[in-house]
Design a protein around this nucleic acid. Structure first.
Length: 445
RNA sequence: UCCUCAGUAGCUCAAUGGCAGAGCGUGCGGCUGUUAACCGCAAUGUUGUUGGUUCGAGUCCAACCUGAGGAGCCA
C-alpha cells in the first residue's frame, strides 16, 4: 500500500511506505550506500539506497544520475536525526525507483556563482533552496495581504493597467501603442481606487506596476507588485493606524507560517517578532533634524556629503537608511513638503507648504515600503494643483468629479511587495524576491 | 545620465610585462552513514572586443561592449 504524500508532511509518515515524485537535488555515495537528496516542490528529503537491497542495476542507474534528474522513488520513511533536508531528520529507504530523465550537465552546482550567471539561469535558479524559500515566503505574504484586507471590509476592485497619462506626473512610464494612440503602463491604480471608494467604501487593487526609470540599485525593479488600499472617510491618523496593523499582521503571519524558510535564509526572527504596533511616528521636520544631528556626529567625509539635507529636500536612500537605524521597528515619517510629493495630497491645515503624506520606512536599511497620504478633497484646490504640476487637465476631469459629487476626506497607501519580501526575508537585493525580475539590464528569461 | 569596480576553463577565482594555473563541477575507479563527504586517475582555454606600446601583453595605454554597486528618481 502506497500513501500519497508530500515531503513537507514527512514527519507524519514515519513507518509508512510512500512515493516521492520529484527531482534529484544532490547526491553522494559511499560504497554500497547512495544518498539522494530529493525535492518535490514542498521540501527536500534524503533517500538512501543500499546496493544489496535495490540490486546492482537500479543502484548503478541511481548512482549515475545528474543533478535535477527527474525520478519517482518509493520506500519506507524512517526518522534519522542525522538526515539533512527540509524538514530535516527523516529519510526514505529506497525500495523502488523509476527514472524519468537523467539530467546531464545541470549548470548550477552547489558552489558559488556570480549574479549574472545565476540571473541568466533564473529559470533553473528558482529550484535552489534559497530562491525556493524566498518564493514560499512571497506567496505567504501575498496571501496575508489579501486575507487581511478581505477580512477588514475591503473590496478587491481591479484598476486598469493601460492608462492614458501619468497618474502622478512624476515617474517615467513605459509607452505602448494603443490603436495608434500613445498609452502607458500603469504606475499606480490609486486614482481609480479613489473613484472606487466612492462606490464601495474601502477597496484595494493588487497587481503589477511599471516604472521606466533607469534606476540601478538593489531596491528597484522595472516591474513590481504593489497593493494599494484606499479608504473613504479616513484621515491621516486613521491611515497610520491601519498601516501599522496591516504590516504587523503580514509580518507575524509570515513568521507563523514560514519560520523554517526564514531560518534557512538566515533571518533574525527576533527582529521580526518585534514588529507589532505601535510604530514610532515622527514628523518630516523632526526627521530632518535627526538626520542633521547624525550628519554632525559623523567624521566620515563621504557620509557627511551624502547626508547633507535642508528643510524642503526629499530624503535620499542614505538619509532613510541612517534614520531607520535609530529604530527597531518600521517608522512613520509624516508631513513632507508638498513640493517633493505628488499633486493630490491634502495640504496640512495652517501649513500649506506641508502635505498630509506619510511614508513607512522599514528598519535595517530596507527603506521605504509604503507611501501614502490623505488625498485632496477640495475640487478647486485640486484643480490648482493640477495646473501647478502642468498636468493635462482634460485627463483629470473625472478625478475632479469625485470631489464635486459627494467628496469626502479619504486616504490610501501603496505597499511594494518585493521590498516587503526583501525586508522580511532579510535578503540584500530585491531581484531575488521576484521569480523573473525585470530590471534596467534584464528582460530575460 | 553621472561616479566607482569587474570581465581568464562549465562555475568561482589566481597568475612581478617572460611556459595558461588552482578549487569546485564533470568522467572513470575505491569505500555501509553521507551532510559543500573523502581518496586516486583523467579531460577541459578565441584571457569580453578592436586597436596601440613592447623583443615579448591576461598584465600597460585608448576606445567600445557586457555586468555589478552606488547617486539621481521612486515602492
Amino acid at each position: 500500500m502506497t500513501t500519497p504524500f508530500t515531503i513537507e508532511t514527512i514527519a507524519a509518515h514515519v513507518g509508512e511506505r510512500v512515493t516521492v515524485k520529484g527531482w534529484l537535488y544532490a547526491s553522494t555515495h559511499k560504497g554500497k550506500l547512495l544518498f539522494l537528496q530529493l525535492r518535490d516542490g514542498t521540501g527536500i528529503t534524503q533517500a538512501v539506497a543500499f546496493r544489496p537491497e535495490v540490486g546492482d542495476e537500479l543502484f548503478e542507474s541511481l548512482a549515475h544520475l545528474g543533478q535535477e534528474s527527474s525520478l519517482i522513488v518509493t520506500g519506507t520513511v524512517r526518522a534519522n536525526p542525522k538526515a539533512p533536508g527540509i524538514p530535516a531528520g527523516y529519510e526514505i529507504g529506497v525500495e523502488e525507483a523509476h527514472i524519468l530523465q537523467n539530467a546531464v550537465d545541470y549548470p548550477i552546482g552547489p558552489k558559488e556563482h556570480g549574479v549574472e550567471f545565476l540571473m541568466d539561469n533564473r529559470h533553473l535558479w528558482l529550484r535552489s533552496k534559497q530562491q525556493w524559500a524566498i518564493m514560499r515566503v512571497r506567496t505567504t505574504i501575498k496571501r496575508a495581504i489579501i486575507d487581511y484586507l478581505d477580512d477588514h471590509g475591503f473590496y478587491n476592485i481591479d484598476t486598469p493597467i493601460l492608462t492614458p497619462s501619468a497618474a502622478e506626473g512624476t515617474s517615467t512610464l513605459f509607452e505602448v501603442d494603443y490603436f495608434d494612440e500613445k498609452a502607458y503602463l500603469a504606475q499606480t491604480g490609486q486614482l481609480y481606487n479613489e473613484a472606487n471608494i466612492m462606490a464601495f467604501g474601502k477597496v484595494y487593487c493588487f497587481g503589477p506596476t511599471f516604472r521606466a526609470e533607469k534606476s540601478k540599485t538593489r531596491r528597484h525593479l522595472a516591474e513590481f507588485w504593489m497593493v494599494e488600499p484606499e479608504m473613504a472617510y479616513y484621515d491621516l491618523e486613521d491611515l497610520m493606524n491601519l498601516e501599522e496593523e496591516f504590516v504587523s499582521y503580514i509580518v507575524q503571519t509570515t513568521l507563523e507560517q514560514r519560520a523554517a524558510e526564514l531560518e534557512l535564509l538566515g533571518r533574525d526572527l527576533a527582529a521580526l517578532r518585534n514588529v507589532i504596533p505601535p510604530f514610532p511616528r515622527i514628523s518630516y521636520d523632526e526627521a530632518v533634524e535627526r538626520i542633521q544631528a547624525i550628519r554632525a556626529a559623523t567624521d566620515d567625509p563621504i557620509q557627511k556629503e551624502l547626508l547633507a539635507i535642508e528643510w524642503g529636500d526629499d530624503f535620499g536612500s542614505p538619509h532613510e537608511t541612517e534614520l531607520t537605524k535609530q529604530f527597531d521597528k518600521p517608522v512613520f515619517v509624516y508631513g513632507y513638503p508638498s513640493a517633493v510629493k505628488a499633486f493630490y495630497m491634502e495640504p496640512w491645515p495652517g501649513r500649506p507648504e506641508v502635505c498630509k503624506s506619510v511614508d513607512l520606512l522599514a528598519p535595517e536599511g530596507y527603506g521605504e515600503i509604503i507611501g501614502g497620504s490623505e488625498r485632496m478633497s477640495d475640487p478647486d484646490v485640486l484643480l490648482a494643483a493640477i495646473h501647478r504640476h502642468e498636468l493635462p487637465e482634460v485627463n483629470y476631469q473625472w478625478y475632479i468629479d469625485l470631489r464635486r459629487y459627494g467628496g469626502v476626506p479619504h486616504s490610501g497607501f501603496g505597499l511594494g511587495l518585493e521590498r516587503t519580501v526583501a525586508w522580511i526575508c532579510g535578503i540584500d537585493h530585491i531581484r531575488q524576491t521576484s521569480p523573473f525580475p525585470r530590471t534596467l539590464n534584464r528582460l530575460t528569461p
